[in-house]
Simulated scan of single mutants.
Amino acid sequence: MAVLDDMAERLEQIRKRENLSQEAFSQRLGISRGAYQHYSRGGREIPSSVLDALLREFGTDPYWMLRGNERGPSSAKEELLVENAARIVLMLLDAYKDQKIQWDEEKLINATKFAQFYLFDKRSIIAEGRDIINKFASS
């Protein structure tokens, strides 16, 4: 539970730094105030779509949201995985927009996971995976 509490604390830090009410902050993240309250109390895990919104809206490093300033022996690998997932999310969102595809959080999460595993299995570089990402967006 400590990880959720730590993430909740960092979420509150961002909101307060931006000097926003819970309602205004929630709107910028594209979530309800109730969902924000669950995340900010550590009652629910913060989904990747909210981490992506924090990155886009406030320039928040997703790795910092997940781990704070803690660095462990495997942090370089973890950071690369988080960076790759974030790049995949951004590519998927662009593909959804370009292809005028309706998406929801579950579809985005599943497509991100599938693309990440597929690219890892093929040992493909994320930048070279744009065509693959577009394919996953439309499926």
Rank of each mutant, 00 (worst) to 15 (best):
R67P: 00
G72K: 15
I101K: 07
E57I: 06
I88V: 12
G42W: 03
G59P: 12
N69R: 07
P62S: 08
I101F: 00
E79R: 14
G42N: 08
Y36W: 14
I101M: 04
K77L: 10
F58N: 03
R87K: 09
T60K: 04
L51H: 05
A53Q: 07
S74D: 15
S40I: 06
E45V: 15
V50E: 04
L80I: 10
E57C: 07
A86C: 13
S74F: 15
V89W: 01
E45R: 13
A86N: 10
V82N: 09
R87L: 12
L92W: 06
G68V: 02
I101W: 01
G68Q: 02
M65W: 06
Y39C: 07
Q99M: 03
L92I: 11
K97R: 13
A95M: 03
W64L: 00
Y36M: 12
Q37N: 05
F58W: 09
K97D: 15
V50M: 06
L80C: 14
Y96I: 04
K97W: 12
E83Y: 06
E78T: 11
S74K: 15
Q102S: 13
T60M: 01
A86H: 08
A95Q: 03
R87M: 12
E78W: 05
Q99F: 02
W64P: 05
Q37K: 06
M91G: 11
L55W: 00
Q102V: 15
P62F: 02
E83R: 11
R67Q: 10
P62C: 07
I88Y: 01
L66V: 10
G68L: 02
A85L: 08
